[in-house]
Design a protein around this nucleic acid. Sequence first.
DNA 1: CGCGGGTTTGTAAGCGCATACATGACCCTG
DNA 2: CAGGGTCATGTATGCGCTTACAAACCCGCG
Lengths: 347, 347
Amino acid sequence: MGSPTVYDVAERVGVSIATVSRVYRSPDSVRAETRERVLSAARELGYVPSASARGLASRVTGVLGLCFPDFAEPAAGDAADPQGAELSLYGDEVIRGMERAARRRGYGLLISAAPADRAGESMAEMAGRVDGLALLAQQWPAAELDVVARRLPLVVLAGQRHPGLDRIEVANFDGQLSLTRHLLSDHGFDRLAFLGGPEDSPDAEARFRGFQAALLERGLDLPERPDTRGDLTVAAGRKAVAELLDRGGPRPQGLVCANDQMAAGALQALAEVSIRVPGEMAVTGFDGIPLGGAVSPSLTTVRQPMGRLGEEAVEMLLARLADRDLPVGSRTLPTVLVRRMSCGCSA
Amino acid sequence: MGSPTVYDVAERVGVSIATVSRVYRSPDSVRAETRERVLSAARELGYVPSASARGLASRVTGVLGLCFPDFAEPAAGDAADPQGAELSLYGDEVIRGMERAARRRGYGLLISAAPADRAGESMAEMAGRVDGLALLAQQWPAAELDVVARRLPLVVLAGQRHPGLDRIEVANFDGQLSLTRHLLSDHGFDRLAFLGGPEDSPDAEARFRGFQAALLERGLDLPERPDTRGDLTVAAGRKAVAELLDRGGPRPQGLVCANDQMAAGALQALAEVSIRVPGEMAVTGFDGIPLGGAVSPSLTTVRQPMGRLGEEAVEMLLARLADRDLPVGSRTLPTVLVRRMSCGCSA
DNA sequence: CGCGGGTTTGTAAGCGCATACATGACCCTG
DNA sequence: CAGGGTCATGTATGCGCTTACAAACCCGCG
């Protein structure tokens, strides 16, 4: 009553199980007529090869894995809040890019969000199922990391630096540097505020350093830390602006935000207190999510090639799979400055 | 030189492989001290249980699958166009919802986009790897469907009806019905145009029928088909508006669009020819993607619980996994009318 | 007619784990 | 102190497939 196996098909056709197996693994090595008979018997019986058995016998699973941070689980009430969806934009593109590249290379993709407090277990659980694993922007416990890395190729995407592990990141520093330069040079601003992310976000911190570097280059006063911080959500952006305005003092000419969502929040908050953007204050984001093109005014930002991040992850994993002795690699993907309206560019 | 196995761990600790296996599968059946010794040996050796072997021995993989349509692959130039990302919004929420529910129930999630012309193969390939499979909004070849359905639980999400298969859909008809009622009753419109999707999209067609029903209810003239059709992209929305305006004739008071993206396109096109929304013409969408809240004017729409769709899929698959003889089920998830500015509601 | 060389198929040995069953240690009861 | 019950562990088998190796077959040619 179980599912049919190679044995059933082989018996039906009157060949050995090896022949059946070969029909699937190396069709050319089987005579065309035999192949057809096997395939048609398989169809009649409803035979589907078991990936578990194949994996066990051949020692590869044909699946790659992606672990990403578990963006705060939206409370059950899903109809009401787009909050969950909003936060996810970043990761979704990586997932899609990785899926696309994996499929093109003949691999499947297993995904798993990892709650911060169970990151290790999540990772270990995937490790047994895949041939290679990509870890996205999160803190991964070093102990598990070591164990898993010994077993299969690992690549860290846009997260912390781990000695000995392959790594792909995005040019956060460069991107923010060039965006800030644009504000300083092309628009002539000299009083900018930075709405930062959490201190433990390496990406957000790198962007802040890019911001600092641009000020440094112009010989302007160097802020030691972001003017305010938030958790990278739209709500945080709104709050940050309120805070900044409450604080009084000279109003900045521009708000440089650690990501697009905070920038979108900032736009909303400014609209509510009738501060015109970009007329009275410029606003910029970072990431290049679709949202940025839709808000009004459209958001000047730095586009991160998130899809590419996923694709490169696949390439890197497969390269290491092909040669475990490859030197540890590290790639930095370039970003693109997207000038839209919120900085005062365009009409 | 291969990865360590139960044998290595067992030997190291001086127990049998059965004990090692039990430490992972049913920890309580092993004496606490033995368990600790096994776990620490496993850590030292870098042992990670092989899911393939486990799957083969226990006949379950602990993984669920999701096949979704392959939204037109964005050309390599990824830095420039958000088009790919835009189209994907719909599926991403399903992926996340399904991943979340699967993880909660102790399952992994394997995903695969299926190009329309390779849907069957895609599906078959997944079938060997998972315990249950969800198929999202696409046409799946009946032959493969039969074969696969015989082997494992299958659930069709928001797609065509397949006799004998579990199914979950969204209340497209009801949603569009109530949105259209809102336009007719609350805003007093009586000349509405419908921007439809492709004829082979069951969802888009169901929405159109909901639209018709509302007109019918009011005794208005019943259009036989959408005033124009498009492929559900922003670009298609723009084109549809241009077409409609070119056509001349009395201008409709409102544009009812088959989805949010076309509605967003319509908004852009109307802005370009300086037709005020909602002043001169109302516009509505369908889906409830985050984009809709960000465009200006914000989009009145019908929110689909896409995350729920994914979660329900998991529940349905697990239910059938627990009892293969369950009667074939079909759920319809309710939608929510979201009144925003583009219809004339709100300030 | 036999033989070398290529092609197609069969034989058989695992792959790493789960688990039914057997074993043994230990405790309790009478 | 024998008998029965529990708990912890060991033994042994098989899950469904891949693959090295061996065998069978076919062809043409000397």
